[in-house]
Amino acid sequence: MRFACCGSDDGPIKPVIGVLCCNEVADRPIQAVATRFVHPLVRYAGATVLLVPAVADVMDTRALAGRLDGLLLTGSRSNVAKARYSATDAVDDAIDLDRDAVALELAGRMIEAGRPVFGICRGLQELNVLFGGTLTETLQDGHYRSTADETAYESLFDHVHDVDLQSGGLLANATAQRRISVTSVHRQGIDRLGGGLTVEALAVSDSLVEAFSAQPCGGNVLAVQWHPEWDVEGNASSRAFFSLLGQSLGT
C-alpha cells in the first residue's frame, strides 16, 4: 500500500454536514439513519456526510458545532416529546428523548455560530420547538399520519398532496413554482409557529405550515414537513431543497 503524505493535493475539501441519527433497536440499541438521506447531500449539496449519534450524555455539542459546516435534522419514526413544547400531561408514544436533546442543543449551537441548519419532517418539528413554537397531533385528513407499524415501508410514501410556496421565499425562488406536490409521512405538525420563522409553504387542504425559513445569525435555516429525499432523483423541487443546502454551505 502506498500512502499520500502531507503536501499531496487531492482537490478542494468538501464541506462536512452532520446528519443526526436516531435511537432504534435491532436486537440491541443502535444509532440509525436512513440511507436515502445521505445520497442527496453528496449528489446535490456537494457535501461530505458525518453521522451524529443521538446519545445525549456523551455528546459534546459545543465541540461538534465548531467542526461541522452544516447540519441536517432528518425525519424519524419517533415524535418530539410533548414536554419540549407543552405543559400537558398527555401520554407520549414513539418518542426518542436523546434525539430531542441532541437535536435541539446541537441545532441551537450551529445556528448561533451562523452555520446552516436544515430540517426534514421531524427536523422541521424540532426546529419549530427550538424557536419557541408548538406542535399538534390533530391533523386533518389531507395529511398522512403514519400510525400502523405493519404498513409496508414503500407504501408509507404513497401519499402526495399539494402545497403553495410563498412568493419571494427560498423555495419559490429556487423552484420557480408557486404550487408543488409533496410526499408526507408524519403524525405531528406545526400548531404555533416559532418566533422569527418565515412561512415558506402552506398546505392547500388546510393551510398547515409545511415549510419555514429564518436567518437569525447569518446562516440559513430551512425546514420542510415533507420528504424531498424520497423522490429526489425524479423531482426537480426535491433536488432544489438539497441544492439550497449546498448553496448555504458555499458549494
Rank of each mutant, 00 (worst) to 15 (best):
R145S: 13
H143I: 11
D98R: 01
I95Q: 08
V42W: 00
G195S: 15
Q166W: 00
Q140V: 00
A101T: 09
G194R: 11
P216K: 08
R99S: 09
R122S: 04
Q177I: 00
V199C: 10
D162T: 05
L97W: 06
L64Q: 06
G168L: 05
L104D: 01
S146C: 11
V55A: 15
V33T: 12
R239L: 05
L106V: 05
G195V: 06
D231H: 07
L245C: 13
R187D: 00
D191Q: 13
R99C: 10
D27F: 15
F241P: 03
N173K: 10
T134H: 06
V16D: 04
P29L: 03
N128P: 01
A152S: 13
D92K: 09
T147I: 04
G142D: 10
H227S: 06
S237C: 14
G114Q: 05
V38K: 05
P216S: 11
V182P: 02
H186F: 01
G123C: 03
D191N: 14
Y144G: 13
H186C: 08
E229V: 05
L244H: 04
D93F: 11
A65P: 04
C6G: 15
A214R: 01
C6A: 15
A83F: 10
S207V: 02
G119P: 06
S76V: 02
S155K: 09
A172L: 09
P228C: 10
P228S: 12
Y44W: 09
S205G: 08
V49P: 03
V33G: 11
G218L: 10
A148D: 14
D158W: 06
D57F: 08
A94Q: 14
T175Q: 11
G46D: 07
G169L: 05
D164W: 01
L41H: 12
L193M: 09
G218Q: 14
L170R: 09
R84M: 10
V55S: 15
V91K: 11
A101P: 05
E229N: 10
R36Y: 08
L208W: 01
Q247F: 03
R192G: 08
D191M: 06
L197M: 12
R192Y: 00
A152G: 15
S243V: 13
D100V: 03
Q140K: 07
E126M: 02
S237D: 14
R2Q: 14
E24N: 12
A174Y: 07
A4S: 12
D27C: 14
D100L: 03
L97H: 13
G219R: 01
A54Q: 04
D231G: 03
V80D: 01
D206L: 13
V102I: 03
I120N: 03
V199S: 06
A203T: 12
S238Y: 00
V221S: 04
A236Y: 03
L249N: 07
E112M: 01
L222W: 00
L156T: 07
S8F: 14
A54T: 04
A113V: 04
A101W: 00
P40L: 02
S237F: 06
N79T: 00
V19A: 12
S207N: 15
K14E: 01
L71N: 10
S86H: 11
I120Q: 02
A56R: 11
L193I: 04
P15M: 10
F241T: 00
H39I: 04
L135F: 08
G142Y: 03
C22S: 15
D162E: 14
P40Y: 00
